[in-house]
Each structure stands twice: as C-alpha cells, then as structure tokens.
C-alpha cells in the first residue's frame, strides 16, 4: 500500500464519518423539530388505532359532493330516487336530513308536516317542487306496520361475566 492509497483511505474514512455525523445530526434535528411541532407525539399515537380513518378520508377526498353509494346519498343519508336533489335542496336547509330518514308517513301526513313547517317554521312556498318532494317522501318513506308491540330485534348477544 503506497502513501497515495493510504491517503485516499483516510479521506474515505473521514468522508464516511462526516456523513454519519451529518445524517445523525439531521435525524436528531428532525426529531426535535417534530417534537416542537407536535410535543405530544399524537400523530404516532393515533396512527395505529385509527387506520380506518384513512380509508374514509381517502374515499371522501376522492368523492364528489353528491356521491351515491348503495342507493344512498352519502352526504345526507337519503335514499337515491327521483326527486332526491329537490328534497336535499329544499328540506335540509333548516333541519338535518336525519329528521326525514327517521320518519315514515302517509301522503296526507307528509303534506300536513310541510304545511306545519310553512305556517310556523318559515318554510317557503315550494311551488312546482312540492309534488316532486311529496312523491319522493311517500315513495321512499311510507309507514311500516309495527303492530302493537314489536319483537326485540338487533340483540347483541354476549357472555355475562
């Protein structure tokens, strides 16, 4: 091994050392900066248990605003059918769509409900949209027979300790 080779070897060693020092300093700096920004390291803590959040967020991000999934208007939970957007635009300004989806009425009672909202709750005149809205409601949210007492449904069985 001549002197030149030896010198090259030394330079390589020094360069390696410098690299290692630099990389470690950068990582320490990176960690410190992160801790400064997020002192509770909450990003990592929530990361694992909330994996599902990623899927939902990802789908929502790609969604258009009025996406329909399995026949349901995702944003409101209303059934996709003729008149859907007329209902969304006229009936979800003041109250949640949940007030519609929870309820089931005959035509007469849906009409009465609309009149009540017009008389007491500042609902506007629906004009030509009224028939579209009522048809949609009667078609998709008609009363279901329950009888005088229903069976205990949706039982979540578990071993009692």
């Amino acid at each position: 091994m001549n002197k030149q080779d030896k010198f090259r070897e030394e330079v390589k060693k020094v360069r390696r050392l410098v690299c290692i020092v630099f990389v470690s300093m950068m990582s320490v700096a990176g960690v410190l900066v992160y801790v400064m920004i997020d002192p509770e390291l909450s990003f990592f803590r929530v990361f694992i248990p909330r994996e599902k959040v990623y899927e939902t967020n990802a789908t929502v991000q790609e969604d258009d605003y009025d996406k329909i999934e399995n026949g349901i208007h995702v944003r409101t939970g209303l059934v996709e059918a003729e008149g859907l957007m007329t209902v969304v635009n006229n009936c979800t300004n003041c109250h949640s769509a949940k007030l519609i989806t929870q309820n089931r009425m005959t035509k007469e009672r849906w009409v009465t409900t609309i009149r009540w909202m017009q008389e007491t709750q500042n609902l506007w005149d629906l004009g030509a949209n009224e028939d579209i809205i009522i048809d949609y409601l009667v078609q998709n949210y008609p009363p279901r027979k329950k009888g005088r007492r229903q069976g205990l449904g949706n039982i979540n069985w578990y071993k009692l300790k």
């Binding site: 007030l99 929870q102 309820n103 089931r104 009425m105 005959t106 009672r109 409900t113 009363p143 279901r144 027979k145 329950k146 009888g147 005088r148 007492r149 229903q150």
Partner: peptide, 11 residues
C-alpha cells in the same frame, strides 16, 4: 319509535 302508525319527530 314504537307507535303505529308512526308519529312524526325524533324517533
């Protein structure tokens, strides 16, 4: 939620 015919409002 148990009334039949159903009554309007939060169930």
């Amino acid at each position: 939620n148990e009334f039949d015919p159903p009554a309007k409002g939060n169930q």
